[in-house]
Simulated scan of single mutants.
Amino acid sequence: MTTISTPQIEETPEAKAVAGRRARPYVHPYAGGILLGLVLFATFFLTGNGLGASGGMNRLVVWLEDLLAPGHVDRTAYLTSMAGGEANPFDSWVVFVFIGLFIGGALSGWLFGRTKVETQGGPHTPVRVRWLFAFLGGSVMGYGARLARGCTSGQALSGGAVLSVGSWAFMFAVFAGAYALAYFVRKLWN
């Protein structure tokens, strides 16, 4: 009989010092999926809206842009509808969802001992390259979220839950694009 032993990973002093506590294990993926489904259902039931984050962030960015360059925002109907002129971004529920997601993620990371400032990547990839690709990838995803009229939480979770064909097409495109691109950026992790 052959037994397979898994190597024990020794915890470094840096890992032990993360937020002064030991990192607790992640929730089981199926349990996390069930919890996310319950949160989505409660959101639909209590507010009549689904989840979404990119719209809230977009409204806050336009609000800041309106403070710095109001003439630019007021000339664009798309931007004016979010935060220009008399529009207040805080009149939209999605802004509070975004703020809550940010606070909840930070609080969860702190409570479970996972708050640490670091840049992860492959041993042969400089930190600057990782940051460059993270910025480029985030910019493309942000633009894509605006173009698709929603992010993965708004389109995939909320739209998919109500069987929106556009949302399902969006998710298939996200996965197909990610798998197609993974081959070309895999060296960032090697």
Rank of each mutant, 00 (worst) to 15 (best):
A106F: 12
L51S: 06
V127Y: 07
F44M: 09
V39R: 04
V185A: 08
V94A: 06
A53R: 10
G154A: 05
M171K: 00
V165Q: 15
S5Y: 10
G84P: 04
S54L: 03
T125L: 04
P123I: 04
A17E: 08
S167L: 02
Y183Q: 10
G121S: 05
A180T: 12
V39I: 14
V62R: 07
L111W: 08
A173M: 13
P123M: 03
L46F: 12
L136H: 01
Y78C: 00
L147T: 14
V27K: 03
F44T: 04
L51N: 03
H72G: 10
A31W: 09
G71A: 09
E14W: 06
T47S: 15
T76E: 12
I9C: 09
L163W: 11
L79A: 09
G166W: 01
L107S: 09
G113V: 06
L60V: 05
L157N: 03
V61A: 13
S108G: 09
F133C: 07
L64N: 12
A156I: 03
F175C: 12
T43S: 14
A148V: 05
V97I: 12
R186S: 13
G144Q: 05
P7R: 13
G32I: 02
L101K: 01
S153C: 08
M57E: 13
Y183L: 03
V129G: 00
L107K: 03
T2Y: 09
L188H: 05
V62I: 13
R21W: 07
T125H: 04
F135N: 05
V117K: 11
K16S: 13
A156P: 05
A106W: 09
A87S: 13
W168K: 10
